[in-house]
Amino acid sequence: MRKSRFTEVQIIQILKRVEAVMSVADICRQHSIFDTTFYKWKWKYSGLEVSEARRLKLLEQENARLKRLVAEQALDIVVLREVIPKYL
């Protein structure tokens, strides 16, 4: 997946600007983003504060780490199931 050139903090600040004063078209033009990108951000980050966004990122990283661990364990189990019957 491509890394965004905006951090979560920057995205939340952009979203807050639209709520405050500016129009969506002006914000998109100013930051060189598409309308669809803005609305995806709004769907994902609406209502979040900066601290909540940081916590969300940490939770996503932890979730990815745990998924990798589970996948490695599943591979170990498959290998052991193939090896054990040969010795019994």
Rank of each mutant, 00 (worst) to 15 (best):
A25K: 09
L56Y: 05
V50E: 01
R65S: 09
G47Y: 13
E60H: 01
R68G: 11
Q30W: 14
V9M: 15
S23M: 11
I11S: 02
V78E: 12
V79H: 05
I84L: 08
L48V: 03
L80R: 06
Y45T: 14
I77A: 00
N63E: 12
I77H: 00
L80I: 04
Y45A: 14
I84W: 10
I11C: 01
K57G: 08
E52Y: 02
Q13C: 05
V9P: 06
E8F: 00
C28A: 09
V79W: 05
L59Q: 10
L75Y: 06
A71D: 15
H31L: 06
F6G: 09
E82Y: 10
R29D: 10
P85Y: 12
Q61Y: 09
L48D: 01
R54C: 02
Y45P: 11
L80G: 03
L69P: 01
F6M: 07
V18D: 01
Q10S: 13
S46E: 15
R81K: 08
V18S: 07
F38M: 02
I14D: 10
S51R: 12
Q13H: 08
E52I: 06
V79F: 07
Y39G: 03
M22F: 08
L48K: 10
L58P: 02
I11N: 01
V50P: 00
R65N: 08
E8R: 00
A25S: 04
R81P: 00
A53L: 05
Q30S: 15
K16H: 02
I33Y: 02
S46V: 11
I14L: 13
E52F: 03
Q61W: 08
A74G: 13
L56N: 02
A64P: 02
R65I: 14
R55T: 12
